[in-house]
Design a protein around this nucleic acid. Sequence first.
DNA 1: AAACAGGCCTAAA
DNA 2: TTTAGGCCTGTT
Length: 281
Amino acid sequence: MRKLPADNMICLGSVKELDPVKTFECGQCFRWNADENGVYTGVAGGRAARVVTKGKKVYIKTTNEDFYGFWRSYFDLELDYEAIRQGFDAGDYLKQCAGFGAGIRILRQDRWEALCSFILSQCNNIPRIKKLVETLCRCFGGVFEYDGEAFYSFPDAETVACLTERDLAPLRCGYRAPYIIGAAKAVAGGGIDLDKLALADMDEAMKALLSLDGVGVKVASCAALFGLGHMEAFPVDVWMKRAMREHFPPDFDPRSLGPYAGLAQQYIFYYARSGGKDSSD
DNA sequence: AAACAGGCCTAAA
DNA sequence: TTTAGGCCTGTT
């Protein structure tokens, strides 16, 4: 078993820039969980880490190598979110949402993991999605050790491509099983090149994703935003539909929000989901 | 117990 | 081009 030493606390910045609660609970990721002390433990990129808030600062327990080689990019630390928020120009409601959601960062998740996870997400709530993803990893992912515990990486597309619906039966993901197998085959077989789609423009990426069975506009936009790094992608689910119905004109075009529309979407979504109430109140 | 859930697909207007 | 019903499963 590969061991990852975890003896090192590195500062990720202030809560204002990276709020673990908002970032991990805003629905974009499924493998971060808080313990009773509010310490988050998560798995990404075949690594595990803990994220700890101490006062106004946020720290990650990992090696220097993994921080610079992986987590810094995963948490999108190079991007100035404050400046992007200032740049939004779409009225008081978005300002309100952005103020409320300040601290959310769009995690740069693994492309295949994001696609697969959001296929599984359809018509499910977050606890169940988390359970599905966790089971998928335990059954078919690689095991490694971190901080004396066993963790499981997300199975790569090549692995899932070789599975049958029968293999996936223990997952109990129902009609989504053939969808993820099909997507895995496309990704592993080169029918869809996620690396290329990350560099392509969003419309091209969306078009390719939508060609997959079981991937509609909502799942494709989530994969584009959270996996491919297309910050202009604007996922619209039932919560967003309601928020937009109540606060935006009927002919509102998300593209008018510019290249970071996806971040605006997260602010609006998080605000709507939280009912405008801060979880720390 | 029946309806619903952070969608998608297909069939039918 | 838009709309209804069904789909696996788990929860209420």
